[in-house]
Structure formats: structure tokens, C-alpha cells
């Protein structure tokens, strides 16, 4: 396995695939690709809205109906749900996100199944996920759809979101230190 040792010690492998890129590089790439995404899909980049659609499709799969739900009441939302996940750019964006992250971790040989250490961790993760999901839906966006895409579209709402995200993070950190350290 001489070739593998050679790759492992190669400075280009280390700089491009193994080590984390600088924040500025990440920021520039995110900006460029959100423009590409907006141009090709016609809607700004968002993540959590699609998760809600996935939930609706799963619910329909087991015989449920969201026709009467306020959240899905608009004609646009109904049309999107009727068209199905294969016609939804957001679905492919989210799948690409997961696949890309997996690929990056694998190629940096950084993939690992992590052990669950305590039930407190599980509780925190589930509770955090539920709160984030609920918050993102009643705010009509998460830190991608409402913050990133909001600011990129020169919308004031993105900046308002940023201020309160910051305040929430302060409160969250205090709670984290108090209950989880």
C-alpha cells in the first residue's frame, strides 16, 4: 500500500482534501453556489422548508392528508406537494448536501460512527432538533432560507433574523454551560 502512504503525505491532498478550508474560502464558495442554485432552481436556497415537505410526503405515504393544514394551504404549496419529491429542486439540494458532506468526510478519512455517551446527549439532541424545526417553520426559514438567502436577496428580514439569532445563541450558550457541562 505504498501509493496510499504517498497520498497521505502529499501536501496537495492535505491542503485540498484533508484539512479544513479557511472560513473565507467557504464563504466565497457558498455565495457562488447559492447564486448557481437560485439561477437554476428559481427559488433561493433553503434547507428546512424541504424537510417539512418531506414530512408531508411521508405522512401522505401512510395515508395521511395535509390538504387542510394551514402551512400547506397555499396553491403553490399544494402544487409542489402534488408534483412529488422527484420534481422538487429542494429535495435534490438536500440530498446533495448529505452526499457531499459524506464524500468530504470519507475522502479526508474522517468518517466515524460515534458512540452515544449519555442519555442527556440524546435528550439534548432530540429537544434541540424539535425546537429548531418548529422555530424554523414558524419563522418561515432557518439560518439558510431566512438568514443567508434573506440577506443575499437584500431583505431586511434577514438582518432582523441575524440580530435575534445572536441573542438566542447567547441564551442558548448560557443554558448549555449550566445544564450540560
Amino acid at each position: 500500500m505504498k501509493i496510499l502512504d504517498k497520498i497521505k503525505t502529499d501536501p496537495y491532498y492535505k491542503a485540498w482534501l484533508k484539512d479544513a478550508w479557511p472560513y473565507v474560502t467557504g464563504a466565497i464558495l457558498l455565495s457562488v453556489f447559492q447564486i448557481v442554485s437560485l439561477a437554476s432552481a428559481g427559488t433561493p436556497w433553503g434547507v428546512s422548508g424541504t424537510l417539512a415537505d418531506w414530512g408531508a410526503w411521508l405522512y401522505q405515504l401512510v395515508g395521511g392528508s395535509v390538504d387542510k393544514w394551514y402551512y400547506f394551504a397555499s396553491d403553490a404549496a399544494q402544487a409542489k406537494l402534488a408534483a412529488g419529491p422527484l420534481k422538487d429542486p429542494g429535495t435534490f439540494r438536500n440530498l446533495g448536501l448529505i452526499a457531499g458532506a459524506l464524500f468530504a468526510a470519507l475522502i479526508a478519512s474522517g468518517f466515524k460512527f460515534k458512540k452515544i455517551k449519555t442519555w442527556r446527549q440524546v435528550t439534548a439532541a432530540v429537544l434541540g432538533g424539535l425546537l429548531m424545526g418548529y422555530g424554523a417553520r414558524i419563522a418561515f426559514g432557518c439560518n439558510i432560507g431566512a438568514l443567508f438567502s434573506g440577506i443575499a436577496s437584500l431583505s431586511l428580514s434577514g438582518w432582523v433574523y441575524a440580530v435575534f439569532l445572536f441573542l438566542g445563541a447567547i441564551v442558548g450558550s448560557k443554558l448549555l454551560v449550566k445544564y450540560f457541562m
Binding site: K114, K117, Q121, S173, L176, F180, M181
Partner: peptide, 15 residues
């Protein structure tokens, strides 16, 4: 800090 996500490892290390 195995299994811990940000920012827990950093706070633990600081402490």
C-alpha cells in the same frame, strides 16, 4: 470529549 459536539469540547478544554 468523544461524542461531544461544538462548543462543548472547547468549553471543557477552557475549564
Amino acid at each position: 470529549c468523544l461524542g461531544e459536539a461544538c462548543p462543548v469540547p472547547l468549553i471543557k478544554a477552557e475549564k
